[in-house]
Design a binder for these strands. Structure first.
Ligand SMILES: NC(=O)c1ccc[n+]([C@@H]2O[C@H](COP(=O)([O-])OP(=O)(O)OC[C@H]3O[C@@H](n4cnc5c(N)ncnc54)[C@H](O)[C@@H]3O)[C@@H](O)[C@H]2O)c1
Ligand SMILES: NC(=O)c1ccc[n+]([C@@H]2O[C@H](COP(=O)([O-])OP(=O)(O)OC[C@H]3O[C@@H](n4cnc5c(N)ncnc54)[C@H](O)[C@@H]3O)[C@@H](O)[C@H]2O)c1
Lengths: 218, 218
DNA sequence: CTCACAGCGTTATTTTTTTCACAAGAAAAC
DNA sequence: GTTTTCTTGTGAAAAAAATAACGCTGTGAG
């Protein structure tokens, strides 16, 4: 089971989503769910749901469907490091603070435990329960707090440099909000959150959907 | 050429990235580039770069490579609506303001022209040059400013409702920051920016990276 | 001049991801 | 007791995406 190797990124992403939906259902008192119900909620097909659960080795009952709390436990065994994962955030600007504000306490096994900024005015403060440090303390704090994942919210011009420092300090995964592709060793996994790209994508697809149509009412 | 239909979302996303990289190169005075150089910068393969440009019908020269400014123009002809695309943002909270602050003036053809919030304290103000309106004005303003794309930065509990109002008002594309999947008509294109999911993905892969091999983004 | 290169465009191949389709099993209906 | 009707799990098929392969074409070294 924890002999879990080679699950695709796509599947991991969906499992994360499924777990969130299942947790909400569990709160509402629901105990079982069918693949097509969950599929409908998540916006995917039922076959995909069944396949994803097959990948992690969870079986439901053809008569009752999936047992929600068991399923959550099973997904969590795949997604979560049992020790928990400590996360750092670098760049305590507008976006960095918004993320800290949003994220804290959301996932019990995934906690932001340190923030870093180059600006001396922003260090040695506690924001959302997270202490901010000077960049010069990065290596030490990352090691001390056993930080393995980091969120980058510095300006694009500093992102590569910051990423390298983080990797050098031992970080193995990054969520990058700066609009630049990071060049890092293959064993570091990076997820880019590029709002300009996303906007251009939806602008493109929203534009071609009414290729022949004209404008509606002014 | 403008008979451009059926370009995959993956390709559109890369084109957006390529354009950004090319624009930066152009500023530095570079005039030509080879596929493998751009590939290297973008973190993809050279074959992919050539393929993407083939899809949009741009040809380079085997001797000089691609002509950067021509290429930018060609990509822009695909990505940009010549009239420009007007964007709204709904939810003027921490994240909404961070995005306005970041995005304004970044893409000439893609402009945030209105903000909306339910909180009366946040309406009728001008933030980053963008006027914020009451939600009740949504339909009217969307029509008046010909807004076709919107960014959703309201709490998860309101996201579905807000999305429906936007679609009802005529919006065709959404970038959704709320951590809930939106259920909307197929012709509306939605891009989700889910930081919890991204963090769980990199946490997962950073955890198994020592054990086995796994590639993240295909 | 000739030849070896280097890089493009495109076709072919491989790999990855999604969807289809159906056996099997159990409740419910009759 | 039999049939009907739901599921799940999963092999097979299809679709989508990425990669490799190769012919073509100027270039520049010798
Ligand atoms: N993907 C998105 O949705 C999105 C949205 C907004 C902004 N962004 C990006 O996020 C980044 C931050 O945006 P913001 O609006 O918070 O900017 P900001 O200017 O408010 O904050 C940047 C912070 O980084 C700090 N910083 C600068 N250089 C640093 C370094 N080398 N090391 C450590 N800290 C450093 C600054 O002191 C500042 O506190 C930018 O790259 C921006 O492009 C992305
Ligand atoms: N993807 C990410 O990286 C990320 C990061 C942080 C937050 N988020 C999400 O973004 C959303 C906003 O986060 P935030 O930190 O800015 O929260 P916030 O509370 O600071 O802001 C929310 C804003 O939405 C307004 N609002 C509430 N209900 C509304 C409605 N029905 N119509 C219009 N406006 C309404 C509120 O008045 C407030 O101004 C949340 O859903 C959060 O989950 C996503």
């Amino acid at each position: 089971m924890d002999r879990s190797n080679s699950i695709s990124g796509k599947t991991i992403g969906r499992l994360s989503l499924f777990r969130r939906l299942l947790t909400a259902l569990s709160f509402e008192g629901k105990t079982h769910i069918y693949s097509h119900e969950l599929a409908n909620m998540a916006g995917v097909t039922a076959a995909q749901v069944r396949r994803d659960f097959m990948v992690i080795g969870y079986s439901g009952s053809p008569v009752k469907g999936y047992h929600i709390t068991e399923l959550i436990r099973c997904v969590s065994r795949v997604l979560d490091d049992p020790e928990g994962t400590n996360v750092a955030i670098v760049g305590v600007g507008h976006l960095g603070r918004a993320i800290m504000n949003y994220f804290q306490g959301r996932r019990p096994k995934l906690q932001i435990v340190a923030a870093f900024d180059r600006d001396e005015h922003k260090v040695n403060r506690v924001i959302q329960g997270v202490r901010s440090h000077s960049l010069s303390a990065l290596k030490e704090v990352v090691a001390q707090r056993r930080i393995t994942v980091a969120i980058i919210t510095v300006p694009a011009s500093s992102a590569q440099e910051v990423a390298e420092q983080l990797v050098e300090a031992g970080v193995r995964g990054l969520v990058n909000f700066a609009p630049v592709p990071l060049r890092l060793p293959d064993e570091v996994s990076v997820e880019d959150m590029d709002i300009t790209m996303s906007l251009e994508k939806v602008a493109y697809f929203s534009g071609i959907s009414d290729a022949g149509k004209e404008r509606m009412e002014p």
